[in-house]
C-alpha cells in the first residue's frame, strides 16, 4: 500500500485489528440471529436465510483480509484527529435528541447549533445558544407553519405563536 506511512516500528496496526474483530463480531451476530429464525414452510426455493448467510460469510472473509492487512500494516496513514470538537458535536446531537420532546424543536436544535459551533471553535455558549435558538425558530416557523412539516413544538414555539404556554 503506497499510502501506508512507514511508522517507527513494524508492530501490527492496532486500530485495524480492532476493525477486523468488529467485522468478525458482526458476522457472528448475523450467523447466530439467522440460525434462530423460523423458516415458514411456504413455497420458497431461496428462503429468507440465504442472503444473511452469504453476507455473514463475506464479512467473515473480509475480517480475515483486514487482519492480514493489519499485520502487514496495509492501512493508509491517519491524520492526527482532535477528539475535543467531535465530543462537542456528538454532545450537541445527543442533547437535541433528549430535549426535542420536552423543550421543542427550537431550543433543542439551537443547542445542537451552538455545540457544533463550539466544536469549530466559536463560543461562548451563552452567546451562541440564543443565536442558535433564534435561527432554529425561524427554520421551525418556515417549515412547521409555512409548510405543515410535523416538527415537535415546545413551550418556546407555543409562546411565540399563540402567546400561551
Amino acid at each position: 500500500m503506497s499510502a501506508g506511512a512507514p511508522n517507527h516500528t513494524r508492530r501490527p496496526d492496532g486500530a485495524a485489528l480492532v476493525i477486523a474483530a468488529i467485522l468478525a463480531a458482526i458476522a457472528i451476530v448475523i450467523f447466530w440471529q439467522t440460525s434462530q429464525m423460523r423458516v415458514p414452510p411456504v413455497q420458497q426455493r431461496v428462503g429468507p436465510t440465504v442472503f444473511p448467510y452469504i453476507v455473514a460469510t463475506g464479512l467473515a472473509l473480509l475480517s480475515v483480509g483486514t487482519l492480514i492487512s493489519a499485520l502487514r500494516r496495509g492501512f493508509p496513514a491517519r491524520s492526527k484527529d482532535d477528539y475535543g470538537p467531535i465530543a462537542w458535536i456528538i454532545a450537541g446531537l445527543v442533547a437535541q435528541i433528549l430535549l426535542l420532546s420536552s423543550a421543542g424543536f427550537s431550543i433543542a436544535t439551537g443547542v445542537l447549533f451552538a455545540f457544533t459551533a463550539k466544536g469549530f471553535g466559536r463560543g461562548p455558549l451563552w452567546q451562541t445558544i440564543p443565536i442558535g435558538i433564534v435561527f432554529a425558530f425561524i427554520v421551525w416557523f418556515l417549515f412547521a407553519r409555512g409548510l405543515q412539516l410535523s416538527l415537535p413544538r415546545g413551550p418556546f414555539e407555543r409562546l411565540l405563536t399563540t402567546g400561551a404556554f
Binding site: 418556515l142 407553519r145 409555512g146 405543515q148
Partner: peptide
Amino acid sequence: ALVSGALSVPAF
C-alpha cells in the same frame, strides 16, 4: 399564503 397558513390555526 404562508402567513395566513401560519395564523389560521386557532389558539386552542
